[in-house]
């Protein structure tokens, strides 16, 4: 077991769990005891189907029913549902517009990486192009934050009776839990449901263990990526902000499956674009844990370096 001062600041990010479930390994190694809660909202209408997970862990797991709660809230509070849909539409439009600028900004970087003029001149131009890309990401983040804040203000989210009721029920459940697991799945659905229930505040101070989308959601910013989609590669995109518990981390679940690891240019750009955050490849059975920002353990996790090369992450490094 790995020793750490207290569990309140404990977080662990894991890779996919489809072949080799490593949740139990992480739970045991981190000495999590007591009841365990689960957030499986990313599974959408399959939420709560945690039979296999419970069997794997060998302890009782309580699903917090985040997805279902939001469904119930929407059914009761139709005006909130409409406002939420409107916000989602605005976010989709923003994402499409951001993608237009992102594509040309990233193309400029890749073209510069291949130039053969004086190395110092190329380096300066590339630095400028990456800096424009980073500015675009920051701009997009601010736009998203503005949309969320306007929505929450407009609907007075925290004051709505249905929302308050469910938040208080979740707070009650959380008070008796030793840790909360956040499963993978649809990351946008997961993010939107957690946000609606104010889970960032509710989960503060709780030990969290998340895999795939559940790992992404614990970071500051959700970065979507896939190099091997049928229609070809898309440049990684910022989607939203996360819970902010794993700060300065970009979580890349199933990296070997989703990323073209032979493309150093792409990986290098990703590393430089999101710096100072570390881009972490989380494959099957990989996991990494921190307590209050102190790295406790890292199993199999690799970091993308500025030159696009992957390097192992070691506890204590």
């Amino acid at each position: 077991m790995i020793s750490h001062p207290d569990r309140t600041g404990l977080i662990a990010l894991l890779g996919p769990q489809s072949q080799t479930a490593s949740v139990a390994m992480a739970v045991n190694a981190l000495g999590v005891d007591g009841s365990i809660g689960a957030i499986t909202a990313g599974w959408r209408d399959a939420e709560g189907d945690i039979g296999e997970l419970t069997e794997h862990l060998g302890v009782e797991v309580t699903d917090l029913a985040v997805y279902e709660r939001v469904e119930k809230i929407f059914a009761l509070d139709v005006s909130l549902f409409r406002a939420h849909r409107k916000r989602q539409d605005i976010l989709k439009q923003l994402q499409r517009l951001y993608r237009v600028r992102l594509r040309s900004g990233a193309d400029a970087c890749y073209r510069l990486m291949k130039r053969s003029e004086d190395a110092e001149l190329v380096r300066l131009q590339l630095r400028g192009a990456i800096s424009q890309l980073r500015a675009l990401d920051r701009f997009h983040s601010r736009q998203i934050a503005k949309v969320h804040s306007e929505f929450e203000k407009e609907v007075a989210l925290a004051e709505r009776p249905a929302v308050r009721e469910h938040r208080s029920e979740i707070a009650e459940q959380l008070s008796s839990l030793g840790a909360v697991l956040i499963a993978g799945g649809h990351v946008a659905v997961l993010a939107s449901r957690l946000r609606l229930l104010g889970m960032r505040e509710l989960l503060a101070g709780h030990a969290l263990i998340g895999w795939s989308a559940g790992a992404m959601i614990m970071t500051d910013q959700l970065v979507l990526f896939h190099d091997k989609a049928p229609q070809g590669r898309r440049e990684p995109e910022l989607l939203d902000v996360g819970l902010g518990r794993a700060s300065r981390i970009v979580a890349l679940p199933a990296a070997t499956q989703r990323l073209d690891l032979g493309q150093d240019d792409h990986l290098a750009l990703m590393a430089r674009r999101f710096a100072p955050a570390s881009c972490l490849a989380l494959d099957e059975s990989d996991w990494i844990a921190w307590s209050h920002d102190r790295l406790l353990a890292a199993r199999g996790v690799r970091r993308i370096k500025r030159n696009g090369v992957l390097a192992g992450v070691n506890a204590g490094a």
Binding site: G185, H186, A213, A229, P253, A254
Partner: peptide, 14 residues
């Protein structure tokens, strides 16, 4: 098919 109906691949991390 994936061009006419793009799947949720981009958004789903299982």
């Amino acid at each position: 098919l994936s061009w006419l109906f793009p799947g949720p691949l981009w958004m789903v991390y299982e």
